[in-house]
Simulated scan of single mutants.
Amino acid sequence: MRAIEATGKIDKQGNLRLDNPLLMREKNVKVIILLSDEEEQEEKLWMKAMATNPAFDFLHEAEEDIYKLTDGKPFHD
């Protein structure tokens, strides 16, 4: 058995709607639904809120860009 990963959403009628069509001929398939954890969703919302919060706009100013890629020493674990 071969696995293909695809993303999608379940609509209000309970139908699975894929984000992109599968490029294959008609076939019988077995579907396993993996739901995202609520924590994962909350973390994404939190990160998006921080990234778009105008309180951090000052970080885009040239005076705040004090480090270069050549600063520091590489860390190899």
Score class of each variant (00 low, 15 high):
Ile32Cys: 02
Glu64Asp: 12
Val31Thr: 02
Gly8Cys: 12
Glu39His: 12
Tyr67Ile: 13
Ser36Lys: 14
Thr52Ser: 11
Leu22His: 09
Phe58Asn: 03
Asp71Val: 03
Thr52Phe: 01
Glu38Tyr: 00
Asp37Pro: 02
Leu59Ile: 14
Phe58Glu: 00
Glu38Gly: 11
Glu26Ser: 14
Glu38Ser: 15
Ala6Val: 15
Asp65Ser: 13
Phe75Arg: 03
Arg25Val: 08
Glu42Leu: 14
Thr70Asn: 08
Ala49Glu: 08
Leu34Cys: 05
Asn53Tyr: 01
Lys68His: 07
His76Gly: 01
Glu61Trp: 03
Lys44Leu: 04
Pro54Ala: 07
Glu63Tyr: 05
Asn20His: 13
Lys44Gly: 03
Lys9Cys: 12
Asp57Ile: 04
Asp65Met: 13
Glu5Asn: 02
Ala51Gly: 12
Glu39Gly: 06
Val31Leu: 10
Met47Glu: 01
Asp71Leu: 05
Ile66Asp: 09
Asn15Glu: 15
Phe58Ser: 05
Ala49Leu: 01
Glu61Gln: 12
Gly8Ser: 09
Phe75Leu: 06
Met1Gln: 01
Glu63Ile: 07
Pro21Met: 03
Ile10Lys: 13
Met50Glu: 06
Phe56Leu: 07
Asn20Lys: 15
Lys73Trp: 00
Lys44Cys: 00
Lys30Gly: 08
Ile33Leu: 15
Ile32Lys: 14
Ala62Phe: 04
Ile10Glu: 15
Pro74Val: 09
Phe56Asp: 01
Leu22Gln: 06
Glu43Gly: 01
Pro54Met: 05
Tyr67Glu: 12
Tyr67Asp: 08
Gln13Asn: 15
Pro21Cys: 06
Glu40Gly: 06
Leu34His: 11
Asp71Asn: 11
Leu23Gln: 06
Ala6Cys: 15
Lys27Cys: 08
Glu63Asp: 13
Glu43Phe: 02
Asp71Glu: 08
Phe58Gly: 00
Trp46Val: 05
Phe75Val: 09
Ile66Phe: 10
Ser36His: 10
